[in-house]
Simulated assay, not measured.
Amino acid sequence: MTTIVPTTSTTPAIIVDHVSKRFLKRNTHSMKEAFISWTKGKKVKSDTFTALDDVSFQVGEGESVAVLGLNGSGKSTTLKLISGVLEPDGGSVFTRGRVAGLIEVGAGFHPELSGRENVYLNAAILGMQAKETQERFDDIVAFSEIGEFIDQEVKHYSSGMFMRLAFSVAIHVDLDVLLVDEVLSVGDAPFRAKCTAKIQELTERGVTMLVVSHSSETVKQLCHRGIVINRGKKIFDGDIDEAVAYLEN
């Protein structure tokens, strides 16, 4: 169960308490094969994959923490559980304050709506009132560098344009916790540098940060602590330099 914890000065911003998450794997490779098996009275074989196995950690208010691991280790699943996109099968996840998650490029955007309309939609999903969004709209567009494309349907946007607009909306929310999953790898070098600088600014303001990235340079720049996950289990939690070295060895 994902729960919003009331704001108190002594409460950690994020608590992951003995969390497990499993996904169902089906052995048939397509809907067609599943349908044929069903019509022939055959059982569709399936089993489960454990993405996270009894993982626990806490992130204090204002901390910047990297979640590290190889592909398939459970990093993105961890962020999705914290954001509330997924529910744990075991254990509990608690967050404090307003949480913004940059977990999937374009998540929360409607392809048939324009960039302008999606700014208001995405901001509302993140808890902003329409008046707040209106007051910050010009700043959101300016940071995203979308410019003349803001009134175009987002289904015509590139992945980089999606990311820039989604990131810009999220960072203009009065947030307490920011979850970032690899979105900084999208876009050109100048924009990535601008995003990194903005995240550092948010950190200095006391925003709690949880970052997933395969770039050791990025996480060392943004985070002071690293949590390493391997095959769904937490295997290291400590200084970011030691975490990166642990992962690379």
Rank of each mutant, 00 (worst) to 15 (best):
K75G: 03
N71A: 04
L81R: 01
L81Q: 06
F94I: 00
I82M: 13
S73Y: 09
A100W: 08
T77R: 05
G91N: 06
S92H: 12
I82L: 14
G90C: 04
D89R: 00
G84H: 06
V99E: 13
V99Y: 03
N71I: 09
T77V: 12
G74S: 13
S92M: 01
S76K: 12
N71E: 09
R96V: 04
T77H: 14
N71K: 06
L81A: 05
T95M: 02
P88I: 01
G90D: 13
G97N: 09
S83W: 00
R98T: 14
K80Q: 15
G84F: 02
K75M: 06
V93F: 01
G97A: 08
T95I: 08
G72W: 04
D89A: 03
G101D: 12
T77P: 07
P88S: 11
G72R: 14
S92V: 05
G90K: 12
V93G: 00
S92F: 00
T77S: 13
N71V: 08
T95Y: 03
A100Y: 05
K75C: 10
S83I: 04
V85R: 05
T78V: 14
G90F: 00
G90I: 02
V93T: 05
L79Q: 08
G74M: 11
L86S: 10
P88A: 09
V85D: 01
T77L: 01
R98Q: 15
G97E: 09
S73A: 15
G74Y: 03
P88W: 01
R98A: 11
A100E: 11
P88D: 07
T78H: 13
F94P: 00
K80V: 00
R96K: 15
F94C: 01
V85F: 12
L79K: 13
V99R: 07
I82C: 11
I82R: 07
R98N: 15
P88V: 07
K75H: 08
L86D: 06
G90T: 02
L81S: 04
V85E: 05
G90R: 10
F94S: 06
A100I: 11
T78M: 15
L102P: 15
G72P: 15
L79T: 08
G72M: 04
I82F: 07
G97H: 06
E87V: 09
S73F: 06
T77Q: 08
V85G: 03
K75Q: 11
S92E: 09
V93Q: 02
N71Y: 05
G101H: 12
S73C: 08
V85Y: 12
G90L: 05
K75A: 07
D89M: 02
L81F: 14
P88Y: 01
G90H: 12
D89L: 05
G91H: 03
R96N: 07
G90S: 14
G97I: 00
G101T: 10
G74H: 12
G84W: 00
L86E: 13
S76G: 13
P88K: 02
R98E: 07
T95N: 07
L102F: 14
G84T: 06
D89E: 12
L79I: 07
N71C: 10
S73Q: 04
V85P: 01
L86P: 05
R96W: 01
G72V: 13
G101E: 10
L102K: 14
V99F: 03
T78Q: 07
